[in-house]
Amino acid sequence: MSELQKGIEYMQNHQFEEAAQSFNNYIEENPEDPVGFINFANLLVHLQEYDSAERFYNKALELEEKLPAAHYGLGNMYYEQEQYDQATKQFQDAMKQGLDDEDVYFMLGMSLLNQEMPKLALPYLQRASELSPEDIDIQFQYGLTLAYGNMIDEAYEQMNVVLSLDEEHSDAYYNKGVCLLYSEKPEEALVQFEKALAIQEEHLLAGNAKKQVEQLLQERDG
Protein backbone atom coordinates (compact mmCIF):
# COMPACT_ATOMS: atom_id res chain seq x y z
CA MET A 1 0.00 0.00 0.00
CA SER A 2 1.40 3.39 -0.99
CA GLU A 3 1.73 6.28 1.43
CA LEU A 4 -1.09 7.98 -0.50
CA GLN A 5 -3.45 5.04 0.02
CA LYS A 6 -2.43 4.84 3.67
CA GLY A 7 -3.20 8.53 4.11
CA ILE A 8 -6.65 8.18 2.55
CA GLU A 9 -7.39 5.18 4.77
CA TYR A 10 -6.21 7.02 7.89
CA MET A 11 -8.37 10.00 6.95
CA GLN A 12 -11.44 7.78 6.48
CA ASN A 13 -10.78 6.36 9.97
CA HIS A 14 -10.44 9.88 11.47
CA GLN A 15 -6.74 9.27 12.26
CA PHE A 16 -5.78 12.72 11.10
CA GLU A 17 -2.22 12.96 12.43
CA GLU A 18 -1.33 9.66 10.79
CA ALA A 19 -3.03 10.80 7.57
CA ALA A 20 -0.99 14.01 7.55
CA GLN A 21 2.24 12.06 8.04
CA SER A 22 1.43 9.65 5.21
CA PHE A 23 0.49 12.45 2.80
CA ASN A 24 3.66 14.30 3.75
CA ASN A 25 5.74 11.16 3.11
CA TYR A 26 4.09 10.75 -0.29
CA ILE A 27 4.80 14.37 -1.23
CA GLU A 28 8.46 13.99 -0.22
CA GLU A 29 8.73 10.84 -2.35
CA ASN A 30 6.71 12.30 -5.26
CA PRO A 31 7.22 16.09 -5.23
CA GLU A 32 6.01 16.47 -8.84
CA ASP A 33 2.73 14.57 -8.35
CA PRO A 34 -0.15 17.02 -7.64
CA VAL A 35 -2.35 14.25 -6.22
CA GLY A 36 -0.41 14.25 -2.95
CA PHE A 37 -0.92 17.98 -2.53
CA ILE A 38 -4.66 17.70 -3.30
CA ASN A 39 -5.18 14.98 -0.72
CA PHE A 40 -3.21 16.86 1.92
CA ALA A 41 -5.27 19.97 1.12
CA ASN A 42 -8.51 17.98 1.49
CA LEU A 43 -7.34 16.90 4.95
CA LEU A 44 -6.49 20.49 5.89
CA VAL A 45 -9.96 21.67 4.81
CA HIS A 46 -11.47 18.98 7.00
CA LEU A 47 -9.38 20.34 9.89
CA GLN A 48 -10.45 23.90 8.97
CA GLU A 49 -6.86 24.96 8.31
CA TYR A 50 -7.96 26.92 5.28
CA ASP A 51 -4.88 29.06 4.58
CA SER A 52 -2.62 26.01 4.47
CA ALA A 53 -5.16 24.10 2.37
CA GLU A 54 -5.28 26.93 -0.18
CA ARG A 55 -1.50 26.85 -0.53
CA PHE A 56 -1.53 23.10 -1.15
CA TYR A 57 -4.30 23.32 -3.78
CA ASN A 58 -2.44 26.13 -5.54
CA LYS A 59 0.79 24.11 -5.44
CA ALA A 60 -1.06 21.24 -7.14
CA LEU A 61 -2.30 23.65 -9.82
CA GLU A 62 1.24 24.96 -10.35
CA LEU A 63 2.34 21.39 -11.07
CA GLU A 64 -0.56 20.70 -13.43
CA GLU A 65 -2.77 23.39 -14.92
CA LYS A 66 -5.85 21.26 -15.57
CA LEU A 67 -6.83 19.66 -12.29
CA PRO A 68 -10.61 19.57 -11.76
CA ALA A 69 -10.17 17.90 -8.35
CA ALA A 70 -8.08 20.85 -7.12
CA HIS A 71 -10.69 23.36 -8.30
CA TYR A 72 -13.44 21.29 -6.69
CA GLY A 73 -11.47 21.19 -3.43
CA LEU A 74 -10.92 24.94 -3.52
CA GLY A 75 -14.64 25.39 -4.19
CA ASN A 76 -15.55 23.36 -1.11
CA MET A 77 -13.02 25.29 0.95
CA TYR A 78 -14.49 28.65 -0.09
CA TYR A 79 -18.03 27.34 0.39
CA GLU A 80 -17.27 26.30 3.96
CA GLN A 81 -16.08 29.87 4.62
CA GLU A 82 -19.25 31.28 3.00
CA GLN A 83 -17.21 32.87 0.20
CA TYR A 84 -19.82 31.81 -2.31
CA ASP A 85 -18.67 33.94 -5.25
CA GLN A 86 -15.18 32.42 -5.12
CA ALA A 87 -16.67 28.95 -4.62
CA THR A 88 -18.81 29.47 -7.74
CA LYS A 89 -15.77 30.26 -9.87
CA GLN A 90 -13.88 27.18 -8.67
CA PHE A 91 -16.80 24.81 -9.27
CA GLN A 92 -17.26 26.31 -12.74
CA ASP A 93 -13.56 25.76 -13.46
CA ALA A 94 -13.84 22.15 -12.27
CA MET A 95 -16.73 21.59 -14.68
CA LYS A 96 -14.92 23.29 -17.58
CA GLN A 97 -12.03 20.89 -16.98
CA GLY A 98 -14.28 17.85 -17.23
CA LEU A 99 -15.72 17.15 -13.77
CA ASP A 100 -19.24 15.87 -14.38
CA ASP A 101 -20.94 14.37 -11.34
CA GLU A 102 -23.79 15.21 -9.00
CA ASP A 103 -21.49 16.71 -6.35
CA VAL A 104 -20.10 19.49 -8.50
CA TYR A 105 -23.54 20.34 -9.94
CA PHE A 106 -25.02 20.38 -6.43
CA MET A 107 -22.27 22.53 -4.93
CA LEU A 108 -22.35 24.99 -7.83
CA GLY A 109 -26.12 25.25 -7.50
CA MET A 110 -25.89 25.79 -3.74
CA SER A 111 -23.19 28.45 -4.19
CA LEU A 112 -25.45 30.37 -6.56
CA LEU A 113 -28.47 29.86 -4.31
CA ASN A 114 -26.54 31.33 -1.38
CA GLN A 115 -25.95 34.40 -3.54
CA GLU A 116 -29.74 34.68 -4.02
CA MET A 117 -29.63 33.58 -7.65
CA PRO A 118 -32.23 30.78 -7.70
CA LYS A 119 -32.84 30.93 -11.43
CA LEU A 120 -29.13 30.50 -12.17
CA ALA A 121 -28.87 27.75 -9.55
CA LEU A 122 -31.88 25.82 -10.82
CA PRO A 123 -30.39 23.98 -13.83
CA TYR A 124 -27.42 22.77 -11.78
CA LEU A 125 -29.60 21.47 -8.95
CA GLN A 126 -31.94 19.90 -11.48
CA ARG A 127 -28.99 18.09 -13.07
CA ALA A 128 -27.76 16.96 -9.64
CA SER A 129 -31.24 15.60 -8.88
CA GLU A 130 -31.24 13.68 -12.18
CA LEU A 131 -27.81 12.18 -11.49
CA SER A 132 -28.62 11.24 -7.89
CA PRO A 133 -32.35 10.47 -7.64
CA GLU A 134 -32.03 8.76 -4.24
CA ASP A 135 -30.16 11.60 -2.51
CA ILE A 136 -32.70 13.20 -0.16
CA ASP A 137 -30.71 16.37 0.46
CA ILE A 138 -30.21 17.04 -3.25
CA GLN A 139 -33.89 16.39 -3.98
CA PHE A 140 -34.97 18.68 -1.13
CA GLN A 141 -32.66 21.54 -2.09
CA TYR A 142 -33.86 21.26 -5.69
CA GLY A 143 -37.43 21.61 -4.39
CA LEU A 144 -36.53 24.69 -2.34
CA THR A 145 -34.85 26.26 -5.36
CA LEU A 146 -37.99 25.71 -7.44
CA ALA A 147 -39.94 27.50 -4.71
CA TYR A 148 -37.44 30.38 -4.54
CA GLY A 149 -37.81 30.70 -8.29
CA ASN A 150 -41.61 31.03 -7.88
CA MET A 151 -42.23 27.67 -9.57
CA ILE A 152 -44.74 26.76 -6.89
CA ASP A 153 -46.51 23.80 -8.51
CA GLU A 154 -43.20 22.20 -9.46
CA ALA A 155 -41.84 22.80 -5.94
CA TYR A 156 -44.93 21.11 -4.45
CA GLU A 157 -44.40 18.05 -6.64
CA GLN A 158 -40.71 17.96 -5.79
CA MET A 159 -41.53 17.88 -2.07
CA ASN A 160 -43.63 14.80 -2.83
CA VAL A 161 -40.51 13.27 -4.39
CA VAL A 162 -38.65 13.98 -1.14
CA LEU A 163 -41.43 12.36 0.89
CA SER A 164 -41.34 9.29 -1.35
CA LEU A 165 -37.72 8.88 -0.22
CA ASP A 166 -38.33 9.83 3.43
CA GLU A 167 -41.91 9.92 4.66
CA GLU A 168 -40.76 11.48 7.96
CA HIS A 169 -39.22 14.57 6.33
CA SER A 170 -40.87 17.32 8.36
CA ASP A 171 -39.35 20.15 6.29
CA ALA A 172 -40.88 18.68 3.13
CA TYR A 173 -44.34 18.75 4.73
CA TYR A 174 -43.75 22.32 5.90
CA ASN A 175 -42.73 23.43 2.41
CA LYS A 176 -45.71 21.66 0.87
CA GLY A 177 -47.83 23.76 3.23
CA VAL A 178 -46.11 26.95 2.10
CA CYS A 179 -46.74 26.02 -1.55
CA LEU A 180 -50.42 25.46 -0.76
CA LEU A 181 -50.63 28.86 0.93
CA TYR A 182 -49.22 30.47 -2.22
CA SER A 183 -51.90 28.59 -4.13
CA GLU A 184 -54.52 30.01 -1.73
CA LYS A 185 -55.44 26.66 -0.19
CA PRO A 186 -55.13 27.41 3.53
CA GLU A 187 -57.11 24.38 4.76
CA GLU A 188 -54.86 22.01 2.83
CA ALA A 189 -51.79 23.94 3.99
CA LEU A 190 -52.87 23.52 7.59
CA VAL A 191 -52.92 19.74 7.18
CA GLN A 192 -49.29 19.81 5.95
CA PHE A 193 -48.12 22.01 8.84
CA GLU A 194 -49.80 19.61 11.27
CA LYS A 195 -48.02 16.67 9.64
CA ALA A 196 -44.68 18.48 10.03
CA LEU A 197 -45.41 19.10 13.72
CA ALA A 198 -46.49 15.49 14.28
CA ILE A 199 -43.01 14.43 13.17
CA GLN A 200 -41.08 17.30 14.76
CA GLU A 201 -42.97 18.88 17.63
CA GLU A 202 -40.49 21.77 17.92
CA HIS A 203 -40.65 22.73 14.22
CA LEU A 204 -40.82 26.50 14.78
CA LEU A 205 -41.67 27.49 11.21
CA ALA A 206 -44.49 24.95 10.98
CA GLY A 207 -45.75 25.97 14.43
CA ASN A 208 -45.86 29.66 13.52
CA ALA A 209 -47.46 28.93 10.14
CA LYS A 210 -50.10 26.74 11.78
CA LYS A 211 -51.06 29.55 14.19
CA GLN A 212 -51.25 32.11 11.38
CA VAL A 213 -53.40 29.89 9.18
CA GLU A 214 -55.73 29.02 12.06
CA GLN A 215 -56.12 32.74 12.79
CA LEU A 216 -56.73 33.45 9.10
CA LEU A 217 -59.42 30.75 8.88
CA GLN A 218 -61.06 31.96 12.09
CA GLU A 219 -61.24 35.55 10.81
CA ARG A 220 -62.48 34.42 7.42
CA ASP A 221 -65.18 32.13 8.81
CA GLY A 222 -66.21 34.63 11.44
Score class of each variant (00 low, 15 high):
Glu3Leu: 14
Lys6Gln: 14
Gly7Lys: 13
Asn13Gly: 09
Glu17Gly: 02
Glu18Asp: 13
Gln21Ser: 12
Ser22Phe: 05
Asn25Val: 06
Tyr26Lys: 12
Glu28His: 10
Asn30Ile: 03
Asn30His: 15
Pro34Gln: 13
Ile38Lys: 01
Leu44Val: 01
Leu47Gln: 14
Asp51Tyr: 07
Ala53Trp: 07
Glu54Phe: 11
Arg55Gln: 14
Asn58Gly: 05
Lys59Glu: 15
Glu64Ser: 09
Lys66Thr: 08
Gly73Asp: 03
Asn76Lys: 09
Tyr78Gln: 09
Glu80Met: 10
Tyr84Trp: 10
Tyr84Phe: 15
Tyr84Pro: 04
Asp85Met: 03
Ala87Met: 03
Thr88Asn: 08
Lys89Val: 13
Gln97Asp: 09
Phe106Ser: 02
Leu112Glu: 09
Met117Ala: 12
Ala121Thr: 09
Ala121Lys: 05
Leu122Lys: 04
Pro123Leu: 02
Leu125Met: 05
Gln126Val: 00
Ala128Trp: 00
Ser129Cys: 02
Phe140Tyr: 15
Tyr142Arg: 07
Tyr142Gly: 10
Gly143His: 08
Leu144Thr: 05
Thr145Gly: 06
Tyr148Gln: 14
Tyr148Ala: 09
Asn150Pro: 01
Ala155Phe: 05
Glu157Ala: 10
Asn160Tyr: 08
Ser164His: 03
His169Gly: 03
Ala172Glu: 00
Lys176Gly: 04
Gly177Cys: 11
Gly177Met: 13
Cys179Asp: 06
Cys179Glu: 06
Leu181Pro: 05
Ser183Gln: 15
Pro186Asn: 12
Leu190Ala: 08
Val191Gln: 10
Val191Asp: 12
Glu194Pro: 00
Ala196Met: 07
Ala198Ser: 14
Ile199Ser: 09
Leu204Asp: 11
Ala206Val: 01
Gly207Phe: 02
Gly207Glu: 08
Asn208Asp: 12
Ala209Tyr: 03
Ala209Arg: 03
Lys210Ile: 01
Glu214Ala: 11
Gly222Pro: 02
